[in-house]
Amino acid sequence: MNRLRVLDAVREHGALTQVEIAGVTGLSAATVSNLVKELDAAGAVQLTPSIRNGRRAVQVSVAASHGLLAAVVFGDRDVRVALGTGGPEVLSQKRMPLPADHAADEGVTRGARLVHELVATSGHDMGEIRAVGIGLPAPIDTVSGQVGSEGILPGWRGVPVASDMAEALGTPVLLDNTANLAALGESKFGALQGVSTGIFIKASYGVGAGLIIGGELFRGSAGTAGEIGHVTIDEDGPICRCGNRGCLDTFVGAQAVLGALRDSHGALTLRDVIARARDGDPGCRRVLEDAGRHIGVAVAGVVNLLNPEVVALGGQVARVGDLVLDPMREAIERCAIPSAAASVDLRLGALRPEEADVLGALVLADQVREDADRAALATV
């Protein structure tokens, strides 16, 4: 366990001297010295001479042979891949468009091809990839490892995505919902850092949530916790793609937002609406304000249930900032228990919408690597 404490310290903080490791971990300098020797012998760390405060020192960092991590995150019409080492920096990344309603086999094939291309163009080889985190914009049933709804991403239903991708890439793979991944990214590197109980709301083409409880991502008994987009807010509302009626997604998803503007503005994309709203278009501003109010009503219920410290808004819709946050805040204050509403901090996510879930996927991959490291170091 102490070897892992040292390894976790240099993984999180970057290269450290042994004195700095002792300060971070609370271990004695002599203990750190012995542990570093053991980790060096195991090939888990790299030692580099340096000068600190005018004195010679040795910097300890994660060994290059410790390997790379990869992320493959699918959107409704694209796939993004990235390489990292476990910190907040993405070494390289690439995006490829996908057709609407694409099937799983096409997505897996293109995603795997993109990883191979990115690894090659970055000067690495696939043998360096220790693990891959995969994200899908759909509820993931952790029991079956498949998409957990018939109507959401129907082309992916019944497909063992993680095992198919692991076979295509030849490395361990872990799969999760993209809202959960974005919450992981914000918890590790962004607006939810240090937060014990928090909610991340991802509002883009659809809306989802990631729940942080006790400082850890909470997935529920079967992996579908946080599906706030499919909370019913109007029993007589429109039919949702999930099969229910009046879900939050039918009021704030891209189809609802674009449909409300079609007669007055013609055919727009969500990016068009966001750009025009930021430029002052009254119609576009109105539909996004309405979306913020609806999201706030749904979030108020979660605030009553969990009493979170922080609610962070991310996704493409977060680009309009207070235009959505203000009606969200008003709805929470109106609908939540006053003490719960008063104690929650509503803020924007700190990471860009296109990077939060990618960083979260790399965090997920790092968990796979850490599990393997624990098993390996236990035998040293």
Score class of each variant (00 low, 15 high):
residue 283 G to M: 02
residue 339 S to I: 12
residue 165 M to A: 09
residue 295 I to D: 09
residue 110 R to T: 07
residue 69 L to V: 01
residue 365 A to I: 03
residue 8 D to I: 06
residue 106 E to A: 13
residue 16 L to N: 03
residue 347 R to V: 09
residue 365 A to N: 05
residue 133 G to C: 09
residue 282 P to V: 04
residue 322 D to I: 03
residue 359 L to C: 09
residue 59 Q to C: 08
residue 303 V to G: 11
residue 184 L to M: 10
residue 327 P to D: 06
residue 169 L to H: 04
residue 362 L to V: 07
residue 172 P to S: 07
residue 357 D to I: 03
residue 73 V to C: 01
residue 349 G to A: 15
residue 324 V to N: 00
residue 28 S to M: 04
residue 254 A to N: 01
residue 318 A to T: 00
residue 200 F to E: 05
residue 65 S to Q: 12
residue 242 C to T: 11
residue 369 R to E: 05
residue 6 V to K: 10
residue 310 V to A: 01
residue 18 Q to W: 02
residue 175 L to Q: 04
residue 299 V to T: 15
residue 79 V to D: 05
residue 84 G to Q: 14
residue 200 F to H: 11
residue 89 E to D: 14
residue 41 A to C: 01
residue 160 P to N: 13
residue 255 Q to K: 10
residue 36 V to C: 01
residue 121 T to C: 04
residue 248 L to W: 08
residue 3 R to E: 08
residue 366 D to V: 04
residue 316 Q to C: 06
residue 354 E to Y: 08
residue 233 I to P: 06
residue 306 L to Y: 07
residue 297 V to H: 06
residue 235 E to L: 06
residue 106 E to D: 14
residue 49 P to N: 09
residue 63 A to S: 12
residue 145 G to H: 07
residue 271 R to H: 08
residue 193 Q to L: 05
residue 90 V to S: 10
residue 366 D to H: 13
residue 341 A to M: 00
residue 170 G to E: 10
residue 197 T to L: 00
residue 351 L to T: 03
residue 372 A to I: 09
residue 33 S to T: 15
residue 317 V to I: 14
residue 346 L to W: 00
residue 45 V to L: 00
residue 193 Q to K: 13
residue 146 Q to F: 11
residue 364 L to A: 15
residue 281 D to L: 10
residue 345 D to F: 05
residue 149 S to G: 05
residue 379 T to M: 04
residue 85 T to V: 12
residue 152 I to F: 02
residue 89 E to N: 11
residue 364 L to S: 10
residue 26 G to E: 05
residue 24 V to R: 09
residue 130 R to A: 15
residue 266 G to A: 03
residue 347 R to M: 04
residue 103 A to H: 10
residue 60 V to P: 12
residue 137 P to V: 05
residue 353 P to T: 08
residue 37 K to T: 08
residue 317 V to N: 03
residue 208 G to S: 11
residue 231 V to W: 03
residue 15 A to C: 02
residue 353 P to A: 04
residue 319 R to G: 04
residue 287 V to S: 07
residue 247 C to I: 15
residue 88 P to W: 01
residue 104 A to V: 13
residue 286 R to Q: 12
residue 208 G to R: 13
residue 126 M to Y: 01
residue 82 A to I: 07
residue 69 L to E: 00
residue 39 L to C: 05
residue 60 V to H: 01
residue 310 V to W: 07
residue 362 L to Y: 13
residue 156 W to P: 01
residue 224 T to F: 04
residue 302 V to L: 14
residue 233 I to M: 04
residue 112 A to G: 06
residue 210 G to D: 02
residue 341 A to W: 00
residue 307 N to E: 09
residue 161 V to R: 05
residue 121 T to Y: 03
residue 226 G to M: 09
residue 28 S to F: 08
residue 211 L to T: 09
residue 42 A to I: 12
residue 377 L to N: 12
residue 293 R to V: 08
residue 92 S to L: 09
